[in-house]
Computed example of a mutant assay.
Amino acid sequence: MWIDSHAHPTSDGIDSELESMQAQGVGGFIAVGTSVASSRAMVELVADLRQRHPQLVVGASVGIHPHDADSATEDDLGILASLVEANPEDVAGIGECGLDLFYEYSNPRSQEAAFRSQIALAKRYDRTLVIHTRDAWEDTFRIFDDEGVPNRLIMHCFVGGPEEARRSLDYGAYLSFSGIATFKNAEDVRQSFLMAPDDRILVETDAPYLAPVPLRGRPNVIGNVAITASFLAQLRGVEERDFATMTWQNTIDAFKLS
């Protein structure tokens, strides 16, 4: 079965997501928050799914996206910490957090401060750090050098080339590949995927964003991780069953899921 390492589901859309997952052979996902409100919602969703669908493998990640860094407060970071403390079985990650200097919806200084604080949270609670970086590789690596990295980190929706992949791997990161890998102009991403070690590869949807070819431009769903994963397995020249087993175990290991 497939597993989606990064998605943004909603409680009102989860039943249709589950139908799509069942149809596509997807057995789990990580529900990722991007603000205090959405992080709380992801934790509640995961707790509910664990009760109603114990066969699913699910976990939540709580964080403040770089787009929202300008409005982030110390109280917000405290709430993220309290979510981890109150829900230790459900919260597997911190983030998505990081730097986005492409859109720069928040001041770079605010982004960096929020990023550093969330690195500290991941280290304090031994949670996986889920990283968003866009047009900010050098700054991201500089902050890694300053702060140190937690035991487990994921470069979410990896869009770098082989050099960025190599440097990320040197920090011990997992590289998570989305539907972008299927896009015609994403040759650098595909080359990064081909050079990555077997035990450092994850697959994600980033649903509802980044639907893979041939669904590009439509709202994405968790079940579509099967389409991206099938494409990547063929690109790597491995059997889908073997690639599913590999990426499933990698996701379990990356988030320390049970």
Rank of each mutant, 00 (worst) to 15 (best):
M1K: 12
H8S: 01
S11W: 00
D15H: 12
D15K: 13
E19K: 13
S20I: 02
M21Q: 01
Q22L: 12
A23P: 04
V26R: 06
G27M: 14
G28A: 07
F29K: 07
S39K: 13
L45D: 02
L45T: 10
V46T: 12
V46S: 03
A47K: 10
R50A: 02
R50V: 05
Q51H: 15
P54R: 14
Q55S: 15
A60K: 07
S61I: 14
G63H: 10
G63L: 09
H65K: 13
H65A: 14
D70K: 13
E85M: 12
D90E: 13
A92S: 15
C97E: 13
R109Y: 06
A114D: 04
L121I: 07
Y125G: 03
R127E: 13
V130M: 15
F141T: 11
D145G: 13
D146H: 08
R152E: 01
F158Q: 04
F158N: 06
G160Y: 01
A165T: 08
A165D: 04
S168E: 09
L175A: 12
L175S: 06
F177Y: 10
I180N: 05
F183D: 09
F183A: 10
K184F: 11
D188Y: 02
V189H: 01
R190Q: 06
Q191E: 15
P197G: 09
I201Y: 01
T205P: 01
A207M: 02
P208W: 03
P208Q: 12
L210E: 08
L210D: 05
N224L: 03
V225L: 05
T228V: 02
A229Y: 01
A229D: 09
F231L: 05
A233H: 02
A233D: 05
Q234D: 15
L235S: 12
V238H: 00
F243G: 09
A244Y: 00
W248T: 01
T251V: 01
F255K: 00
